[in-house]
Design a protein around this nucleic acid. Sequence first.
DNA 1: GTAGCACCTAAACCTGACTTCAGGTCAAGA
DNA 2: TCTTGACCTGAAGTCAGGTTTAGGTGCTAC
Lengths: 146, 146
Amino acid sequence: MYSIGQVAEMFGLPISTLRYYDKQGLFPKMERVSGIRKFSETEIEALRVIECLKKSGLEIKDIKQFMDWCVEGASTYPQRKALFEKQRERLEEELIHMNKVLDMLKFKCWYYEQAMRDGCEDQVQSMIPDGLPGDVQRAYENAHHD
Amino acid sequence: MYSIGQVAEMFGLPISTLRYYDKQGLFPKMERVSGIRKFSETEIEALRVIECLKKSGLEIKDIKQFMDWCVEGASTYPQRKALFEKQRERLEEELIHMNKVLDMLKFKCWYYEQAMRDGCEDQVQSMIPDGLPGDVQRAYENAHHD
DNA sequence: GTAGCACCTAAACCTGACTTCAGGTCAAGA
DNA sequence: TCTTGACCTGAAGTCAGGTTTAGGTGCTAC
């Protein structure tokens, strides 16, 4: 059993955030001893799931919905599974997009490296879009397609 | 040259967002013909960069800083390059983190599939953390490490 | 016995990124 | 002529996700 301060430390989160999550109903089964929150292994794993679902693009109120399903019991396995499947698909698409963004950043790094060497952007501009070195060209195209 | 409506269409953005970006100074060289915005190739590429920098975690005010550097000319190549390098590093770390999140989602998908088959979580719980099938174990560990 | 620390609450406040509103210009078509 | 559509403005409103404030409890060390 951990205190709120220990959990904040463990997860690198402000205490106020944990209290806010609690108020939003994200730890429905959390115990209290004379008013003081006691985080058990259940809440620790809940917090890992919260961070995961947040990163995958879910809002707090939808995470609360998930926590409610957990309290409801075995009858909500299908909803919970469907939720994770949906977020998994979302995130897989997001990762593809992120890789395009990364290629754009890589391209821009190369671009300004050239510009610094030449003192101006003229040469490098003249190589766009078909006269770029192999992997730069690849990054440029991936970043600019779709 | 494109109208604001055409650009909104091209990028799938509301017109209000483009006007907001403009007001924040994200299109410092945009021309106007009797008050009406004219988006040239410059602004189109700017918008691609805006979306890229936003996705990489930058705030509007920092993107404006970048646009100001662009106006300032060749003397700011080092700052601009440093910015892209920093965002590139950030995003690479972010992608590693996202892959952990994805592994958590994959693990939870598998978890609820088992729970649905068994009708309860007991069996599957008893396999954690060392009795999981190969790739599920791998996902679980990646998701729960660090 | 009082100072300091970790905890508690409700309620107000903040921030970033937009969005909506109320009102106005201008050109083209019926 | 008139009305429709695409554009314009400044200012106010919205929303999520916290954070801060003001005031209070209860234990332990000095």
